[in-house]
Design a protein around this nucleic acid. Structure first.
Lengths: 202, 202
DNA sequence: AGCTTCTTGTACTAATCGGTACAGTGCACT
DNA sequence: AGTGCACTGTACCGATTAGTACAAGAAGCT
């Protein structure tokens, strides 16, 4: 049971990507329900037949968009793949801030924006959840590395610490989004970092 | 320039309230864009003429819903009005948790769900922001009281601490919402409380 | 060249969207 | 009893929605 069609030629892949890109951008600003398929196709230059050739319906397009968001997010914080010291965690938070500072658009997390909206859609919610878990797993890995290196206390729980860090990131982004002021995110990340370091071996 | 009509008779007020109630409930689950005016009217038993008698358009209905959300939220955490000791803050976090535990529905914050969706609507975003500021202001007041009583360090900034607490609340609710597991919120609140108490006079 | 499969453009549908028009009812006040 | 206003019910509008039908174009393979 394939969930959605794959493109089997370079041309098809380009078209499919263009649709997902346009959808990702529009849904980032207008939300899922606020972004019609027609708008996506107009923005991507594709026709309706392409859309329904590659996706069974709008929900499956949203699924692809969620994946795309996760890719973009992780690509924007490469330090998350190499968390082997406390300094690396600091670098990671700096990258998080830089992304929002560089982006001309509104301060926000694409996945966070979706979280509230699709929170009860039984098809989509698990995918958003899974995306967050993937994101978080890199933090877990980093914290585990630190623990193994003896820089994190042996009794510290990497999974719980990572979840705590994620709540700070998301809470900070939500407040910063509403106020369009990155200070809220800066503070949240600073506190999260201090909290993590509070479990370091002194 | 009145922004929206008021009901001037008991009957009118009942109708208006029924519309807002139905809208609040539906938008909590399906989001703003996912909730059509027609659905709201069907759920409330009102006709379209009532709706457009009391509200200029859908956006103004959403404005009323945002106000309603803030009322409900604050009513569910009465301890926030009497924060005069650290124990009161603990009571407050307990009430936050109890609300989510008691509610049979999904774990979520109605305002948080909206935050992502209306984040860029120039009419609605400031209202959501304002609702959060009102919410937060009670924390600021409580922390200021504690500082005046000498239980919070004089150099601590109530506004910043309150914002930090809000980020934890929202981040915790977002994660708990996605995972439908209140643990994320429990942890977030525990950490937030410890962070606040870290600024207490020892 | 010719065949097959992937891909694309256009036209279409039924349902739903937000919003309006307008005639009518309930109710207070005189 | 009559007048005026708040309120209500229903029918309607053009625009937009998600999704379909179908024929034609492009491209790889033999």
């Amino acid at each position: 049971m394939e969930t959605q069609a794959a493109a089997s030629t370079p041309r098809g892949k380009r078209t499919r990507d263009a649709i997902v890109d346009a959808a990702a951008q529009l849904m980032y600003v207008d939300g899922v329900a606020g972004t019609s398929v027609d708008k996506v196709l107009a923005a991507s230059g594709a026709g309706k037949s392409q859309m329904y050739h590659y996706f069974k319906n709008k929900d499956q397009l949203v699924e692809a968009v969620i994946d795309r968001y996760l890719e973009q997010i992780l690509a924007n914080q490469p330090a998350i793949f190499e968390l082997t010291s406390w300094a690396d965690f600091e670098t990671w938070t700096e990258q998080l801030l830089d992304v929002q500072r560089r982006a001309g658009g509104p301060i926000a997390c694409p996945l966070g924006n979706l979280a509230g909206e699709v929170g009860d859609n039984p098809k989509l919610a698990p995918l958003v959840d899974q995306a967050y878990r993937t994101w978080e797993s890199h933090l877990v890995r980093g914290l585990t590395t630190l623990r193994d290196k003896g820089e994190l206390r042996p009794d510290a729980d990497p999974a719980r610490l990572a979840q705590a860090a994620m709540t700070s990131v998301q809470g900070g982004l939500l407040l910063a989004h509403l106020r369009q002021d990155i200070t809220a995110l800066e503070d949240a990340l600073g506190i999260a970092l201090a909290y993590l370091r509070g479990h370091a071996v002194s």
